[in-house]
Computed example of a mutant assay.
Amino acid sequence: MRALAASIAIAFLAAPLAASAADGQPRKALTKAGQEAARSVVLKRGDLGPGFAPHARGKDEGTPKGARCRALDEDDLTVTGDAASPDFRLAQGALFVTVGSNAQVYRTLREANTSWRRGASSQTTTCLSDIVRLSAGPGQKITVVSAKRVPFPAIAPKTTAYRLVLTIGLGGNQRIRTYVDAVILQHGRIQTGLLFTSVGRPVASVDLVALASVVAARMAKAAGPKGPVA
């Protein structure tokens, strides 16, 4: 869940992503099996339609100062696998969409469930809103119009989704309406987050469900009867 919070700024503002325990991220004790499981889950270029191009992520600059995210901190938890897809971007005329995902394998099921419980708190939307608002670049003013949990099909043993509606002021009277959709899944010790950003209108629900279902199937395969070995 904490990794998703860090990812919000990435996909939307092209800010980078990396896990850092000093910034509330879980500690890393990466293993070969854990890394293989995490990498197998995240989105691949072939999962998306024509026109999407991968953009590599850079180094994380941390959660913006002042973001109210303490309730999601996981510096007392440990992951054995951590992976992120590129940001896949589609730009065609006025259409601009970014899709990305990350996956973490927690050391124990208890730790995975602890992460999920914290992320399911009411503080999640506050944290995500603050990260986006406070990550505005020079000349930008970001206003969070709404941030809420939204219904989503139970495609994994644990499933939840959030939508943020934003306006970006670019100077003068120019404002852009932007949508951020986050889908979070957990299967055993594996958690994954999918992040969609779009300008003008939200990504269609059928597309959100289709891509999340691809990831959910990979999670089920990676978890297996006993989950990925440590």
Score class of each variant (00 low, 15 high):
58 G>D: 06
209 V>K: 08
104 Q>K: 15
185 L>Y: 01
222 A>H: 00
60 D>Y: 11
14 A>H: 11
228 P>V: 03
191 Q>H: 07
30 L>V: 03
202 P>A: 00
20 S>R: 14
148 K>T: 04
134 L>Q: 03
52 F>W: 05
132 V>P: 10
78 T>F: 00
95 L>I: 14
111 E>S: 03
64 P>G: 03
187 H>A: 14
179 Y>H: 04
73 D>V: 03
117 R>D: 11
185 L>Q: 04
109 L>W: 09
150 V>I: 15
71 A>C: 05
34 G>Y: 07
126 T>N: 06
77 L>M: 07
25 Q>S: 15
220 A>L: 13
68 R>K: 10
205 S>K: 13
171 G>H: 07
199 V>L: 12
91 A>L: 11
188 G>K: 03
35 Q>E: 13
190 I>F: 02
61 E>F: 01
69 C>Q: 06
28 K>R: 10
10 I>K: 10
221 K>W: 04
96 F>Q: 14
157 P>D: 02
134 L>A: 02
199 V>S: 06
17 L>G: 13
163 R>I: 05
204 A>Q: 13
227 G>S: 12
42 V>Q: 14
62 G>N: 04
3 A>I: 08
96 F>D: 13
205 S>P: 03
21 A>S: 08
28 K>L: 05
137 G>A: 13
181 D>C: 00
38 A>K: 09
42 V>W: 09
177 R>A: 14
151 P>Y: 04
125 T>Q: 04
89 R>K: 15
136 A>Q: 08
61 E>I: 04
152 F>N: 13
1 M>V: 15
26 P>T: 05
19 A>M: 14
106 Y>T: 07
215 V>F: 05
131 I>F: 04
207 D>L: 12
64 P>S: 10
141 K>V: 05
68 R>Y: 03
177 R>C: 05
185 L>V: 05
71 A>V: 04
116 W>S: 02
106 Y>N: 10
62 G>M: 03
135 S>W: 08
34 G>W: 02
2 R>C: 00
119 G>Q: 11
221 K>T: 13
77 L>Q: 01
209 V>A: 06
22 A>N: 14
197 T>P: 07
226 K>L: 08
45 R>I: 15
138 P>M: 04
92 Q>V: 15
175 R>P: 02
181 D>P: 01
50 P>F: 10
217 A>H: 03
131 I>R: 01
79 V>W: 09
125 T>C: 02
174 Q>E: 06
203 V>N: 08
77 L>A: 01
48 L>G: 00
182 A>Q: 09
49 G>M: 08
78 T>G: 00
154 A>D: 11
56 A>R: 15
156 A>P: 09
34 G>R: 05
25 Q>V: 07
227 G>D: 13
166 L>N: 10
147 A>F: 05
